[in-house]
Amino acid sequence: MADQLTEEQIAEFKEAFSLFDKDGDGTITTKELGTVMRSLGQNPTEAELQDMINEVDADGNGTIDFPEFLTMMARKMKDTDSEEEIREAFRVFDKDGNGYISAAELRHVMTNLGEKLTDEEVDEMIREADIDGDGQVNYEEFVQMMTAK
């Protein structure tokens, strides 16, 4: 299944994987998964984290390695993001709930994920998604960005 991913997608997933893999040992533990999910405003229980890991832990060693992570991402993409997942993601970014993602809100979430971005990089990300040019990202623009192939 992971063989249907483009090189660009694999590179993006590698970057995402390293955000989860806090200690850089090449595997994601339940603790690391929990840290990232909490930084995104989720509050999973230990059991939920274990279930999430077990779902993709092909070799049964209790952690997720990069090939397992790729399989999980490929699977998720095949079920292409349901509207509800996209709306949920939008809410994570839209901290003040005004229906727009500002540069400050984007920077806040990315920083929580451990991504240190310059102001230019954040502005560039907003510009790429900002179709109507108002300097922020509304829900429609967010959907376009998330579903762009």
Rank of each mutant, 00 (worst) to 15 (best):
A2Y: 04
A2G: 13
A2K: 03
A2P: 08
A2V: 13
A2F: 15
D3S: 03
Q4S: 09
L5T: 14
E7D: 14
E8V: 12
E8A: 05
E8R: 00
E8M: 06
Q9H: 11
Q9G: 09
Q9Y: 13
Q9K: 10
Q9I: 08
Q9T: 12
I10D: 03
A11Y: 00
A11I: 06
E12V: 08
E12F: 05
E12Y: 02
F13W: 10
F13I: 13
K14Q: 08
K14H: 02
K14I: 00
K14A: 04
K14S: 05
E15R: 03
E15W: 05
E15D: 13
A16Q: 07
A16G: 11
F17N: 02
F17E: 04
F17S: 08
F17W: 02
F17Y: 04
F17A: 00
S18Q: 10
S18P: 11
S18K: 06
L19T: 05
L19K: 15
F20A: 01
D21V: 13
D21L: 11
K22T: 09
K22P: 00
D23E: 11
D23N: 14
D23G: 13
G24L: 04
G24R: 11
G24P: 03
G24E: 08
G24T: 09
D25L: 04
D25K: 02
D25I: 05
G26K: 09
T27H: 03
I28C: 02
I28Q: 00
I28D: 15
T29E: 05
T29S: 07
T29K: 14
T29V: 15
T30H: 04
K31T: 11
E32D: 13
E32C: 10
E32T: 04
L33G: 00
L33E: 00
G34F: 05
G34E: 11
T35S: 12
V36W: 02
M37E: 01
M37A: 15
R38W: 13
R38C: 08
R38G: 12
R38V: 13
R38E: 14
S39Y: 15
S39V: 13
S39W: 15
L40E: 02
L40N: 15
G41T: 07
Q42T: 04
Q42A: 01
Q42L: 13
Q42M: 02
N43P: 08
N43D: 11
N43R: 15
P44V: 15
P44L: 13
T45A: 14
T45S: 11
E46K: 06
E46R: 10
A47I: 09
A47K: 09
A47W: 10
E48F: 13
E48C: 07
E48Y: 11
E48G: 14
L49P: 00
L49Y: 15
L49I: 08
L49A: 14
Q50L: 14
Q50S: 08
Q50F: 06
D51A: 11
M52H: 07
I53C: 14
I53S: 06
I53G: 04
N54M: 09
N54W: 09
N54S: 10
N54K: 09
N54T: 04
E55Q: 10
D57V: 10
A58C: 01
A58W: 01
D59W: 04
D59F: 12
N61K: 08
N61S: 13
G62N: 02
G62D: 11
T63V: 09
T63F: 05
I64M: 11
I64K: 01
D65E: 12
P67L: 12
P67W: 08
E68F: 01
E68H: 04
E68K: 12
F69P: 03
F69S: 07
F69T: 01
L70C: 03
L70N: 15
T71Y: 01
T71R: 10
T71W: 06
M72A: 02
M72G: 00
M72C: 08
M73R: 11
A74H: 07
A74K: 05
R75Y: 12
K76Y: 15
M77N: 04
K78I: 12
K78C: 13
K78P: 00
T80N: 03
T80P: 12
S82G: 14
S82I: 09
S82N: 14
S82L: 12
E83I: 01
E84H: 02
I86F: 09
I86W: 06
R87Q: 08
R87A: 15
R87P: 09
R87N: 09
E88M: 06
E88F: 04
A89Q: 03
A89V: 10
A89E: 01
A89W: 06
F90E: 12
F90Q: 08
V92F: 14
V92Q: 07
F93L: 12
F93S: 01
D94F: 02
D94N: 11
D94A: 06
K95F: 04
D96F: 07
G97H: 03
N98Y: 10
N98V: 03
N98T: 06
Y100L: 07
Y100D: 13
Y100K: 04
Y100E: 15
I101L: 12
I101V: 13
S102T: 06
A103P: 08
A103L: 00
A104R: 10
A104W: 05
E105W: 09
E105F: 05
E105S: 02
L106G: 06
L106V: 02
H108C: 03
H108V: 13
V109W: 09
V109P: 05
V109L: 00
M110V: 11
M110S: 03
M110T: 11
M110Y: 05
T111C: 07
T111W: 02
T111E: 14
N112R: 15
N112V: 07
L113H: 01
L113Y: 04
L113D: 00
G114Y: 04
G114Q: 02
E115L: 00
E115N: 07
K116D: 00
K116F: 02
K116V: 09
K116Q: 14
L117F: 06
T118P: 07
T118F: 10
T118A: 13
D119L: 08
D119N: 12
D119W: 08
D119R: 10
D119I: 02
E120Y: 13
E120H: 14
E120K: 08
E120I: 12
E121C: 00
E121R: 10
V122R: 04
V122W: 04
D123Q: 02
E124N: 12
E124G: 12
E124L: 00
E124K: 12
E124Q: 01
E124S: 10
M125F: 05
I126D: 06
I126G: 00
I126V: 12
I126C: 04
R127I: 11
E128Q: 01
E128G: 11
E128R: 02
D130N: 11
I131F: 14
I131D: 00
I131P: 01
D132W: 04
D134E: 14
Q136P: 08
Q136A: 09
Q136E: 12
Q136H: 09
V137F: 08
V137E: 01
N138C: 15
N138K: 12
Y139A: 01
Y139Q: 01
Y139L: 00
E140D: 09
E140R: 02
E141W: 04
V143H: 04
V143Q: 06
V143P: 14
Q144D: 05
M145V: 11
M145A: 13
M146R: 01
T147I: 13
K149M: 07
K149P: 12
K149C: 08
